[in-house]
Amino acid sequence: MIPVHLITGFLGSGKTTLLQRALASPVFANTAVVVNEFGEVALDHLLLQRVDADTVVLQTGCVCCTLRSDLAAALRELFDKRERGRVPPFDHLVLETTGLADPAPILFTLTADPVLRHHFRLGSVVTTIDAVNGAQHLVQHLESIKQVAVADRMVLTKTDLVDRARVEGLRAEVARYNPTAPFFETPDASLALDRLFSAETFDPADCDSPSVRRARAPLSGTVGGGDGLDRHARDITAVSLTVDSPLDWTVFGMWLTMLLHAHGDDVLRVKGILQVRGVLTPVVIHGIHHLVHPPTSLPRWPTADHRSRLVLIVRSLPAHLIERSLRAFLRLAPPERDAA
């Protein structure tokens, strides 16, 4: 399966500059690139393809269940050329979205397309945030908040143009919308591009970070004004749940499918590392809105802590009810059989 890494971020936040830098690195020697538009920053890359912004809205009318037919066609064409030997056999693909693009339909396209889902999988979602204007974007544009919420990695750009206090303030602000994604900064000559686009997008230690614990309280008083967006933004909360004993996969699946059925529009992101009954290795789960990636297993637990940890970034959903609901469902599981 070829990982599709997503670079998203607001207009002018440095997506193409980051992409340009990544492509110059030997780490990205076998990488294909798909862009929405050819911007001002030139990309001189062998495997460059453009997509048009055609979308097909499915009958559900749901924001995330929008098929990006343009993207599906572009990826199919690229894969076809790869199979026929007309382009080098790339093993990574980087997709740069437009500044206002919502990443959820891209994930839907990768998981719903009958051809693509057998050849591509979502890699990491990298969101660029402009240190000069990022705070303002968060106040004025819900898309900017969503791009931060869905990120696996966040890159603060143009940090050399503002003072350190402002960078730290922006980091604190952004971490309140997404406390699990690690930060990177540019310009930084030592920027670890391999870590930035690593296929493994879940670091369980992030679930225990102080920012996650702080974020369990609803956000408040961070953005000015009093308009709808302000209220909308303040209602975004990161909920961190820890379960001590192994989960029953059937019960957990039933709970999460029901939660996403009822509230998927308000679940911006789900990520977790789970200890599942009968499975020796940790199971990693990722989701955006109603969509959940096929879960994957890590070869081993990254730390001595083997408890299940789940982080949900939600909008206007009470954290205490989410936790109560998960625990009420989990206690319905039949008693665990003794391990053979």
Binding site: R117, W249, G253, T257, G278, V279, T281, P295, S297
Partner: peptide, 12 residues
């Protein structure tokens, strides 16, 4: 039907 995520769990 294609497998749903609740069906796909390595090791089970």
């Amino acid at each position: 039907q294609a497998r749903h995520w609740t069906d796909r769990l390595e090791g089970t």
